[in-house]
Design a binder for these strands. Structure first.
Lengths: 123, 123, 123, 123
DNA sequence: GTGGTCTAGACCACG
DNA sequence: GTGGTCTAGACCACC
């Protein structure tokens, strides 16, 4: 289910947005499925409704959901743009990590080795 | 030289610390070389002296420099611990990036391809 | 037919009112023709009857329809006032758009060009 | 100066964002110029600081400003993306207006006439 | 009932 | 001092 980690340094609304995006992309949340209402989720997670609303607004901005005032928020049926954005972010992140590693003197062969391990890990 | 990018979302002191650490590890700053004084650097970069001091404190905490009261801050001669910490951080970061990429559905082969490009880039 | 787009940011009742007005002005709905009953349309569009009722009230207010208590809503035979209101709204809108475009630095010639395209498009 | 119209139906933060964007694009606010602080503007306009903050966040999201936490918000030196977005919005708006006008039975010649008037008006 | 907006007041890291 | 985040509680239009 949707959850929040207070030890995480990212803001709560960002964690929520990322979580829900992942659930949408993985199919755990289906197209046109309704998200829990702002108030309901606020009670469930013991979080202020405004914070939930901020997360939902962010999700709509990122094209993951669409919102109908007075009805609720729903998973978008076309997630391609969100998926593309996420992939592109991941690629940038990866490139950054490679360059950082190189600057630290980590050998290319070591990276290749680590890819082998990391890519096939379970979690 | 040492520089700062205000549009970067990382705090100024963190940028400074990272910059100086990189310069120390790359040999651009040599062991026992003295860093500019807090005030001097503050004037040069048009930055609040407190911020410089915070960066210098962070550098000492990370084992990159040592401070002599009344004299200034100097590059440590033994940077191995700092280097190891940085390498380990880079490896974690890399592993994270790989797993994130896998979750986004990026193929292993694509990552190998990207390593080739990123590792051999100039900047 | 009458339809509704939930992803549209305009309220449902407004979409309905606009749709029906357009159908009346284009002749698709004829003078004195009866609109579907509130309940019937509510079932058909899977929409709350209150929303339909609000749209019908709005149509009556705008002079597009007249309502006979206990019988239903009918297209007005004299749509001239509605047509005039709509024309005047469209003209205002157009003038606003032109001024906005000018403020953005769009050339007059470009606007003339765009009129050519937009006015002769099908949809 | 920056101002707000309570009679306007757009939310306050949106009015602020649009106003400031216009001032930036017209050169009234210069690159790297600092905006008034959230609290300061809040006092001046007698508006809650959160609302100002929302407007500033929106401006950053739209690429009009950049924000340095602990320092303030500043006009971006490269406003091309914001300008392009605004132009594209204006063109869409214009096209919509033309099509709406056509549906209302307004003649093309009338539109051309109106462009003449509207484009050369002062305000 | 729903989400959107606004106010009020608090705490935090940063400079 | 700055902006970022969060909480609390209110009002609105819409469904």
């Amino acid at each position: 289910m949707i959850s929040v980690d207070y030890k995480d340094k990212r803001p709560i609304y960002e964690q929520l947005a990322v979580n829900i995006t992942a659930m949408a992309l993985s199919g755990e949340l289906k197209p046109d499925e309704q998200l829990p209402s702002v108030r309901q989720l606020a009670v469930q997670l013991k979080i202020n409704p405004n914070t939930i609303a901020k997360a939902y607004a962010e999700l709509e901005r990122r094209g993951v959901t669409y919102t109908v005032a007075g009805k609720g928020s729903f998973i978008n049926s076309d997630l391609s743009s969100a998926a593309k954005a996420q992939q592109s972010a991941a690629e940038n992140n990866f490139t950054e990590a490679v360059m950082q590693a190189r600057l630290c003197g980590i050998e290319k062969s070591r990276l290749l080795e680590m890819i082998g391990e990391a890519y096939d890990t379970d979690k």
